[in-house]
């Protein structure tokens, strides 16, 4: 008898995704649901979706969700986590959400080492509102508000929020991944799982930045959009671990609690 080796994760509702063909958002939703299933934390996980294309994430991921106003997800999540430290709280935010209007609270949450797992979906544009330029937009990239391409001395440079957050002492794990190929998708899942684990181990702030394709606003086919991420976007936003002090943090944490550090 043939055995099924791939199917829909349990933590995902049956609803059909509203995303455009080839969009990275729904791949990331599925990975989140797979991680929640594997960690067995569905009954104690709370998500905070953004304003952006993923505003309806609560229609898909089958955990409690508390919608946040644009950019405020980290602040809302901080409130939830501080009132209920027993819960596992993640935010799900676009680049316009976390790296533009939400920059301030994000930096301070990272600095305070809030026990949160932030999922930062970087597609380089304001997808939901029609593909306007974001702080993350590449130099020369054409968007609806940079029709001749982004010019640095007029529009600023691509903002690397993950690097900025890595400077804060309260952040312990930051990794940048992509969802452009099965290999990258598997790495992204591993990173999401680790970001949850960091929170469950009470270590500090964790964030996964995921380079995600927005074929519609980039005016590329889904396959070409993936290629563009792998060939162009990674030049400004290289993939890989940006910060990981979980081991050092583990030792520090045990010492704080008066336990001997494991050697």
């Amino acid at each position: 008898m043939a055995k099924q080796v791939f199917t829909r994760p349990k933590a995902l509702k049956d609803n059909i995704f509203h995303y455009c063909p080839g969009c990275g958002h729904s791949i990331i939703h599925r990975l989140l649901a797979e991680v929640i299933d594997e960690l067995g934390i569905r009954d104690k996980t709370v998500g905070v979706p953004p304003a952006g294309c993923a505003v309806l994430a609560y229609n898909y991921i089958d955990v409690d969700m508390g919608e946040a106003p644009h950019g405020r997800a980290i602040a809302v999540a901080t409130g939830i986590k501080r009132t209920r430290p027993d819960l596992i709280v993640f935010t799900y935010q676009g680049d316009g959400d976390i790296a533009a209007i939400g920059t301030a609270e994000t930096i301070h949450a990272a600095n305070r080492g809030e026990r949160l797992s932030a999922i930062f979906v970087n597609n380089g544009v304001y997808g939901m509102t029609g593909g306007q330029m974001a702080p993350t937009t590449l130099l020369g990239q054409t968007t609806t508000t940079s029709p001749g391409g982004r010019l640095p001395l007029r529009d600023g440079f691509p903002l690397d929020l993950s690097q900025m957050l890595a400077v804060a002492d309260g952040s312990v794990y930051i990794e940048r991944t992509a969802v452009t190929s099965p290999k990258n998708i598997i790495k992204t899942k591993r990173a999401i799982k680790k970001a949850f684990q960091v929170q469950m181990d009470d270590l500090g702030f964790a964030l996964v930045e995921i380079l995600s394709q927005c074929p519609i606003n980039w005016k590329l086919s889904p396959v070409d959009a993936c290629k563009w991420v792998e060939e162009e976007v990674v030049k400004s936003y290289p993939l890989g671990v940006i910060k990981d002090t979980t081991q050092a943090q583990n030792r520090m944490d045990r010492m704080k609690r008066g336990k001997r550090a494991k050697t």
Binding site: K3, Q4, F6, T7, R8, G24, H25, S26, P182, P222
Partner: peptide
């Protein structure tokens, strides 16, 4: 049954059997 197609499908439209 390598499942590469299913892993990248954004709409979870593919089930894989071995």
């Amino acid at each position: 049954g390598c499942a590469l197609c299913a892993i990248i499908c954004p709409d979870i439209a593919i089930e894989v059997f071995r």
